[in-house]
Design a binder for these strands. Structure first.
Lengths: 226, 226
DNA sequence: GTTTGACACGAACGGCGTTCGCTCCCTAGT
DNA sequence: ACTAGGGAGCGAACGCCGTTCGTGTCAAAC
C-alpha cells in the first residue's frame, strides 16, 4: 500500500473556530436542508455528513440508519402543522388535514415514509390526537372515529406523496399533465371508450384536493363502522 | 435456431439446451418472480440479469432503467385484475377496486410506483376505463366521475402500499400492530388524551378496507364536483 | 496521574445503477 | 456465395451508495 506521504492537512478540523457538536437534531435539520435544496436522490448519508463537516460514520451514533433518519425528518416536518384553527369541527378538520398534506408534500419523499408505518413520532401523534378530538366532536362513536382517523391518515400521506412526486418530477407539473393528456388523446377509442369520451373532464382544472377531502368527510359522517 | 456446435468453452452458455432469447416480457416476468420470492431489496438489475442467466448490461436493450422496469412490472401485475363482475354498479366497482389493491399489494413496492404517476400502462388504463364506465352508470356527471376515478386510484395505490408494507415489514403483521399498541399504551395521557382514551378502538379488529371503500363511494355519490 | 468511556471518523467492504465499447451473429444486398 | 452492416449481448469499469470496524481523542471520574 502507498503510505500516505506526510499528509500535512493544512486546516485541521479541530483547529476551526467553533464546530457545533453533532446531535440528532442537527442531523435531522441538515437532512431536511439537503432534501429541500437538492432533492431525494441527494439525501445520502455521505451528503448529510458533508453538510455537517464530518464523515458518514459519525452519523450512526445518533441515527440508526437512513430509514430512521427519514422517519425523524418526517416528524420534524410535522412539527410545523398548526394544531388549532378557527371554525366548526369540519372546518378545523379540513384545515388540519390540508396542513398535514402541505407539510409532507413540501419535502420530497417524506410522505412515502408515512405511508408504510403506523405513526409513532411525537408530532405525528399530536396531529392524530387532534384529529380524533375533532371527529368525536362531530358526534362519531369511538370505533368510527378510530377508523376514520386511519383513513384520513392514509389519504393525507397518499395525497402528499402524489403531490410531491408531481412537484419534483422533471420540474414542471404542467409538463407532466400535458404529456399525459397527449398520451390519452392518442389512445384507441374502441379499446378505451370512456377515457376517450371523458378526456377533457379527466384533465379539467379545479380544486380536487378540497373536493376529495369533502368526499371523505361526508362519507365518514354517514357510514358508521360495523 | 443454432444447433450448438462444438464450442470449446467448457460450460458455455451457448452449449446449454435452449436459452430463451431476451425480451422485455421475459425481463418483466423475471423481475416479478424475484420481487415475489425475495422482496424489493433483492430487485436489482444485477439480480434480474442473473435470473435470466446474463449480465446487467444486457437488460438495457429492452428496459430504459430500473424505474421503467418497475412500471412495466406494475402494469403486468394489473393484467390479472378481472374487469367484469356481477351485481350492481356499486358491487362491481367495489370488486374492481378491491382487486386492484389486491393485485398491487401482492408485490412489494409496486404500489409506490402507481402513487407518483398518472397511469399510462395498457392494463392500468383498462381498469381506469372500466371504473369510469361504472361511475357513469351510477349517474354521475362527467367531471365528478373524472375526479372520482382519480380519488379511487389514489386510494387504491395508497391502500396497496400500506398493506404490502405491513405484509413484508419484518415478517409478521401481528407483531407490527402489537408493537404499536404497546407504544400507544405507554404514551402520556395528558399529552395524548384522545389516543389514550380511544386506544382500544384504534386497534380494534374489523374490515377496515371494505368500510373505507364504502366511505369513498358514499361520499362521492353525495358530493358533486363544483 | 491514571483510567475509562463516549464520541468522532478514516478506511474499507460489498453492493448498487448505469455506460462504454468490443465481439459475434443474423440479415440483406450484391 | 460472399460480404457489409447493424443490432444484440455482455465484460469491464465508473462513481456512487449504506453500513461497519477499529482506532484515535479527549474530558470527566477516580
Amino acid at each position: 500500500m502507498t503510505p500516505p506521504p506526510a499528509t500535512p492537512e493544512p486546516i485541521s478540523r479541530r483547529a476551526r473556530p467553533a464546530k457545533a457538536p453533532l446531535s440528532r437534531e442537527a442531523i435531522v435539520r441538515a437532512g431536511l436542508a439537503i432534501l429541500d435544496r437538492d432533492g431525494l436522490d441527494a439525501l445520502t448519508m455521505r451528503r448529510v455528513a458533508k453538510e455537517l463537516d464530518t464523515g458518514p460514520a459519525s452519523l450512526y451514533v445518533y441515527v440508526a440508519n437512513r430509514d430512521d433518519l427519514m422517519a425523524a425528518m418526517l416528524d420534524e416536518a410535522l412539527a410545523r402543522v398548526p394544531l388549532t384553527a378557527e371554525g366548526s369541527w369540519r372546518e378545523q378538520l379540513h384545515a388540519l388535514v390540508a396542513a398535514s398534506v402541505e407539510a409532507m408534500s413540501r419535502h420530497e419523499g417524506l410522505a412515502a415514509v408515512a405511508l408504510g408505518a403506523i405513526p409513532t413520532g411525537a408530532n405525528a401523534l399530536l396531529v392524530l390526537d387532534r384529529m380524533l378530538a375533532l371527529l368525536k366532536q362531530a358526534g362519531l362513536d369511538d370505533i368510527t372515529a378510530a377508523w376514520a382517523v386511519d383513513l384520513l391518515h392514509l389519504h393525507s400521506a397518499a395525497a402528499a406523496a402524489e403531490q410531491s412526486a408531481h412537484l419534483t418530477k422533471g420540474g414542471k407539473e404542467e409538463t407532466v399533465v400535458a404529456d399525459a393528456d397527449r398520451h390519452y388523446a392518442a389512445l384507441p377509442a374502441e379499446r378505451y371508450p370512456m377515457i376517450t369520451a371523458l378526456r377533457s373532464a379527466l384533465f379539467s382544472a379545479g380544486d380536487r384536493d378540497t373536493w376529495g377531502l369533502d368526499v371523505l368527510l361526508s362519507g365518514i359522517l354517514q357510514t358508521p363502522a360495523r
